[in-house]
Amino acid sequence: MEIVELQLKAAQIRKDLLTIIHRAKTGHTGGSLSNTDILTALYYRVMNIDPDHPQDENRDRFVLSKGHSVESLWSILADRGFFAKEELLTYSQFGTRLIGHPNNKVPGIEMNTGALGHGLAVSVGMALAAKRFGKKYRTYCLMGDGEQAEGSVWEGAMAGAHYKLDNLIGIIDRNRLQISGPTDEVMGLEPLEEKWASFGWHVVSIDGNDMQELVQTFEAVPQVADKPTLVMANTVKGKGVSFAENVAHWHHHVPNDAEWEKALSELDSSIEKLKREGQVC
């Protein structure tokens, strides 16, 4: 997909994730909205994946370490054809596969996540396996910024650098808000980029809601041989919905009927503007 097509797709995914959260009356809205552009760039442009062969040994791996922000991922996997879009209607219902965190009974999910701090360590193992067995696939791991308070993140960071895993890409959804408030008030993180660099990672800081920057960054990896890459994706919590942006309350706030309708109306306006500016039919 070209950049404007990716932007249009991200807006539609935001509509889809808001709809399943509104219907289920549960979910993590703010973080799913902030990470949508990152996932859209990966799943529609960057990663080597095939919905018809989800277990292809040469596929790129993706791990959503911040597993609570799964609604954007479910919406994208359905749209890409990993499972029928109708199944989205079962999100968080009794007996569904589409629970509130990634579930590896669903095609396209590499591992169950939810307990924060585990995704990077497992991603290190996946990337190391590729090196040991001569495979070309890459492993992408999306973490939250609040998650950086977990000690296991830094054990994984140390191991990734030690094994020179330049096929490993860590991404931090740096929206600066977590469930109980601003991340730097809950647990100070700065200087976060310098910390990752000191652990031996090549660090790139970008606007994580700018599709052009996301694509250019991911397509340029690895920029440094024998070093894993950390993409500091500076995002806006609640991105795309004006009244949810940068509001900590929207971490797990479920939109009521009026909020849902207003959010969809805003996103529809964004889609129409993108179509006009990009001359897309």
Rank of each mutant, 00 (worst) to 15 (best):
E266F: 10
P228F: 07
A84G: 14
L264A: 09
T235Y: 08
K273H: 13
A220R: 02
G119P: 09
K239P: 03
R276H: 09
S92T: 06
R97I: 06
D79P: 13
D226Q: 05
E259L: 04
V122D: 04
F133S: 15
D173C: 06
L120C: 00
V124S: 02
A127V: 08
L165W: 09
S205H: 12
M187A: 15
R14G: 00
E150S: 04
I13P: 02
Q279R: 08
D184C: 01
G156V: 00
H249N: 10
L264C: 12
E245N: 04
G240Y: 01
V46R: 13
D60K: 03
G134V: 01
H101L: 04
A129V: 10
P191Y: 06
N175H: 14
S34W: 04
G170N: 04
H118C: 11
N35D: 11
P191L: 01
A159Q: 15
V153I: 14
K164C: 12
L142P: 10
K105S: 12
S72L: 08
L6N: 05
D210R: 09
I49W: 03
D166H: 13
A24E: 05
G119A: 03
T40V: 09
G278Y: 05
D145S: 07
W154L: 11
Y44W: 09
V247D: 12
I13D: 00
F94S: 15
D79Y: 06
L189Y: 14
D226E: 09
S270G: 12
S152A: 10
G30I: 06
A157Q: 03
Y140Q: 06
I99W: 03
L230C: 07
H251N: 08
S75E: 08
V204A: 07
P102F: 12
L17K: 00
